[in-house]
Design a protein around this nucleic acid. Sequence first.
DNA 1: TTTTAGCACTCTCAGGGCAAGAGTGCTAAA
DNA 2: TTTAGCACTCTTGCCCTGAGAGTGCTAAAA
Lengths: 343, 343
Amino acid sequence: MLDERKMKILSAIIDDYIATAEPIGSRTIARKYHIGISPATIRNEMADLEELGYLSQPHTSAGRIPSNKGYRFYVDFLMPARKLEEYEQSFIKRLLKKRAKELEDLIEEAGKVISKLTSYTAIILGPQLESSRLKHVQIIRLEEKKGLMIIVTSYCTVTHHIIEIPQNLTDSDLQRISNALNSNLSGKALEEITPEIMNSIKDDMIEYDSVLNVLLDLLMENLDDTKESNKVYSTGSSKMLEFPEFRDVERARNFLALMEQHDLITKALKNYCKPNSITVTIGNENPWNEFQDLSIVTTGFFVENKNLGICGIIGPTRMEYSRVFSILEKVSDYLSKAIASLL
Amino acid sequence: MLDERKMKILSAIIDDYIATAEPIGSRTIARKYHIGISPATIRNEMADLEELGYLSQPHTSAGRIPSNKGYRFYVDFLMPARKLEEYEQSFIKRLLKKRAKELEDLIEEAGKVISKLTSYTAIILGPQLESSRLKHVQIIRLEEKKGLMIIVTSYCTVTHHIIEIPQNLTDSDLQRISNALNSNLSGKALEEITPEIMNSIKDDMIEYDSVLNVLLDLLMENLDDTKESNKVYSTGSSKMLEFPEFRDVERARNFLALMEQHDLITKALKNYCKPNSITVTIGNENPWNEFQDLSIVTTGFFVENKNLGICGIIGPTRMEYSRVFSILEKVSDYLSKAIASLL
DNA sequence: TTTTAGCACTCTCAGGGCAAGAGTGCTAAA
DNA sequence: TTTAGCACTCTTGCCCTGAGAGTGCTAAAA
């Protein structure tokens, strides 16, 4: 563990670097932060900190910048707690008030709020349906031979599929099928829908065998889909380019390309984020080198104590961690409430 | 109108500039394109073309680059027709084969195809529901006091709303309401749903007055929404940054910020694009100066001869117009077919 | 033993000067 | 009407230089 003085210096360097994006020299620290020791002493300490891996030097005669290890130490031990500004509070509160029609709208809104307030790119991984159950299935006839199957999960997410209806089925047949599916399947999670159950449904309604096959397939596929691939929402990429780390177009492009790789982002979020608390992944703590000089901060949002998704931000490792923490905490809180009142 | 020789020279300059992004000098033209006249003559012609507004010079001792007027002339008169490459053909064909579950998936897929093939940013404005009609309304009970209203339009786009169900309504009440709404409203366009019709529904079912008010409001709001604000899909922004015109981060950022302004894009597409044919808007032919050095190429897609939406690309004014034309034409064609077979 | 002042050294960065290169417009000859 | 020739302009890359910032080391001070 570092001694008091080293921590003070490290803290000062990181704070300053986060604010200015310029390497910091010993003189600057002595002048701006009043630690009460001379630049020479600070220089010695900085050399130590560099040897320990917390700092690095872009070139010999430049100041120091934090390394990933430095940021990690900062986030874990040094970072000051921060209260939200008045305007941030009220901005987030609007989330709750704006009556949204759907979960999706709400999530998009939350993304906008996060990116507006932080200037980083918001990422939301939403509805995480691992624990979702089937709530309702309904088949509606639209035309002579065309119908709509509507699937509602326990989180009130709705999906629909256009299906073909065999000529000989009447409306009451459709209703009977709907009823049978509901009474057998509703309340069940994906893994509880076994082949036995499906066969028993088919046996009960042998006369509808062919259409039932199609329906059950669609149903399973649908549940499978929502389980596998969460939808990724990301907002505010253009603002990110204002940061000096993206002055180089090459890096900007890489970042934008990364934001289009939803599968990779999903992986990164799922593997490295505990939804129950705010999690940070700094630079190469992420195994994919696309994230090399990016940090991810995330937290979950919940309904009835069940994790519904992950919201967070992605930005350069030089990030205002403490601001992001305070904002994300609040947004996740309010988002959870807003969803609860929606469902 | 320009004489033959001027057209040849203009054509050569624009072709070359589109390919290289470098100003072209008289010598280059004489060497690469065999027009059979000397650089000096070409120089004279170029001076004429500049005076006429088709070319401009970045600085006195540089070559010429096309002006917006030049591009316009090129697109209208000079541009060679182009056939699709084998691989482009087959790439687009996959659109049709991939069975999509929803219109939305199909549209997103089309966007990806367009941006992959052209390297420009694909923009799709979709389902344009101006001429859409209400096809079906259905209310489903999910829980004791919670229900789902499902609205299907004539293009089989589906929206849903979670609604509150008053305590005393039974399932058969809900069915009765659904039936009444359907028999009175289905097949009607938004503007055909007059207050008289709504009142007559209410009169018929006076006992459900309060819930009917909510439902009808939602319904109108929904139709209004889909009419006003089409959804904008855009894909492939990161690839755009590979073009030399975006080597400047400032411009890259402006472009990305523009792509997030869906309302402006909608306006630009709606006001300046005729869906029946391929339309180009070059640079400041668009009145908003965000589009200053961008061109938009669009065309519509159709189902049963009704325009369902607009698909197109947005890119720098220095654009491979003829390639884009050929690709867009094909995609719109196949997209229309794919949608037809889906619905 | 720890801290600090002093100093030589290193590296970057902005600015100036210079030569090369590309392209033009003009003039006069073909 | 076309073309060769030529002087002129402007950009670009390159080198050089001096200023500035910051370091590490040494030796003196606390």
